[in-house]
Design a protein around this nucleic acid. Structure first.
Lengths: 185, 185
DNA sequence: ACCTGAACACCGTTCAAGT
DNA sequence: ACCTGAACACCGTTCAAGT
């Protein structure tokens, strides 16, 4: 329970919800526990938000802005497409990277708003990957196919890292996996 | 609400729960709605099961036996490893195939019992894939790496099919994806 | 042995009443 | 404008009481 002098803003609730999402998944984004944590009542929550889905929509929006858009912008600054691709793999296999992704994918099944954001992010990732493969000399069509495969592997990696981490390749094996997803040249 | 003459067995509850899981994900495996559907009370449920986690463990076990073990056995009967691999892809891109997989992966995060089954199934799938790649002439090490990539793509496919189905390749594009995961020869 | 019905805890949601 | 407190619904869980 956090002490404070003045009232809570909508943003305070959303930040707390993002922390809860990272730590405990979607089910941790719960009104009563958050209220307790913030030292407020549930009634206060319903002044700032229409309902729990409203909070979830806000937290997903924050996640997209803070983690996806900004993260992609930082990657885009890397000149060499081969280095950019390598960095993407490094990020993808970093433990915990996909935790929010998986939580949101789970929530997307029952929340159309979340589904929309997840879909948009996944398509943006494919576009980003395809542009790298284009720079590496692949045809438009082949670049897109390679990009889809890489996205599928990336999503799979996020999921498998949570359930069977032993399967995620490391060291030399990871290098080989990377080479399977990197065109020769 | 289903009418019946005699009492319900544990198995009746588990079968109903599997249907609910397929239709509505993990959150549909709920005691009160299932009781209502079966025309019983929640108290009756707690005669057959220790708690909801007990039901979930049982439904996961049934899923593993009915869908995974038996499905793999049927695939294993196919002589030509190339055809066997192709059949795996066909199954993987069939809409709905991964719905239970994703639901269980989601549940695995909070239920160690489910996590154990999911881990076991994923490792078995890698072994199965690796044996196919071995038959196709790859080295033990390379076969395993190719198998891991194929599993990641398969898991990714199940997830993406639920959130961004437009990204899942079809027709000629699917054939190309397949070829990316199939060694030449 | 198998089930009912009532009770309680927890969380989402509403709302009249307070400042 | 912003919040409290009490109320209700829904689902998980327990348990004394019924057959």
């Amino acid at each position: 329970m956090v002490k404070r002098e003045v009232g809570l803003s909508r943003s305070d609730w959303v930040e707390a919800a993002l922390l809860a999402l990272e730590a405990g998944g979607m089910r941790a984004v719960a009104v009563e526990p958050l209220a307790k944590h913030l030292g407020a009542t549930k009634g206060s929550f319903y002044w700032h938000f229409k309902d729990r889905a409203d909070l979830i929509a806000a937290v997903v929006e924050l996640w997209e802005r803070r983690y996806v858009t900004d993260g992609t912008a930082r990657l885009a600054e890397i000149e060499d497409p081969r280095v950019r691709l390598e960095r993407l793999f490094t990020v993808a296999v970093t433990p915990g990277t996909g935790r929010i992704d998986v939580a949101l994918t789970e929530a997307a099944k029952t929340d159309p708003g979340v589904a929309e954001v997840v879909r948009r992010v996944q398509e943006a990732r494919v576009d980003f990957l395809a542009s790298i493969y284009r720079e590496l000399g692949l045809s438009r069509r082949h670049a897109r196919q390679q990009a889809v495969l890489a996205l599928l592997a990336q999503v799979g990696m996020a999921v498998v890292a949570e359930t069977a981490p032993a399967l995620i390749p490391t060291g030399a094996d990871l290098a080989t996996l990377r080479s399977l997803l990197t065109p020769p040249g």
